[in-house]
Simulated scan of single mutants.
Amino acid sequence: MKYLAVLFWSIVLLQMINFVLNSLNGGGALNFVTPIIGAVVITIIVVLFDFVIKPNNNDTKEQH
């Protein structure tokens, strides 16, 4: 569920960034696909980062 929240907020924030940068560039056609692809990539990076920093169960049992 936390990864769905990451995906949701990354889509929302990247769409906002896309809108602002498109408006600063003079308008034109708004690209919806590129921010969604970027949001999926960011979500995958967050998932991988979470798996890397999560301690193993064997390591925590040995410390106690």
Rank of each mutant, 00 (worst) to 15 (best):
Ile45Lys: 03
Leu30Phe: 15
Val41Gly: 08
Phe32Asp: 03
Asn31Leu: 08
Asn58Glu: 13
Leu13Asp: 04
Gly26Cys: 04
Gly38His: 00
Ile44Asn: 02
Val41Cys: 01
Lys61Asp: 12
Ile37Ala: 11
Ile44His: 00
Ala29Phe: 14
Thr60Glu: 15
Lys54Met: 11
Ala39Pro: 01
Phe32Ile: 08
Phe32Gly: 04
Ile45Glu: 07
Val47Asp: 03
Asn18Leu: 00
Ala39Phe: 01
Lys54Leu: 06
Asp50Asn: 14
Asn25Lys: 10
Asp50Glu: 10
Ile37Ser: 05
Asn58Gly: 02
Asn25Ile: 04
Asn58Val: 08
Ile36His: 04
Pro35Asn: 04
Asn56Ser: 15
Leu21Ala: 12
Gln15Lys: 07
Thr43Cys: 05
Gln15Pro: 02
Gly28Ile: 08
Lys61Thr: 10
Ile17Phe: 07
Thr34Ile: 13
Gly26Ile: 02
Val46Leu: 01
Gly38Glu: 05
Ile37Glu: 09
Asn58Trp: 13
Leu30Thr: 07
Val40Arg: 01
Thr43Arg: 01
Thr60Pro: 02
Phe51Val: 05
Ile11Val: 15
Val52Thr: 10
Ala29Arg: 13
Asn31Glu: 10
Gln15Tyr: 08
Asn57Asp: 13
Leu48Ile: 15
Ile44Ala: 09
Phe32Gln: 11
Lys54Pro: 03
Thr34Phe: 11
Thr43His: 04
Ala29Ser: 12
Ile42Lys: 04
Ile36Thr: 10
Val41Lys: 08
Ile53Thr: 14
Ile37Pro: 01
Leu30Ile: 14
Met16Ala: 15
Gln15Met: 14
Ala39Val: 01
Phe19Asn: 09
Val12His: 02
Ala29Asn: 13
Leu48Arg: 02
Ile53Asn: 03
Gln15Gly: 06
Leu13Met: 13
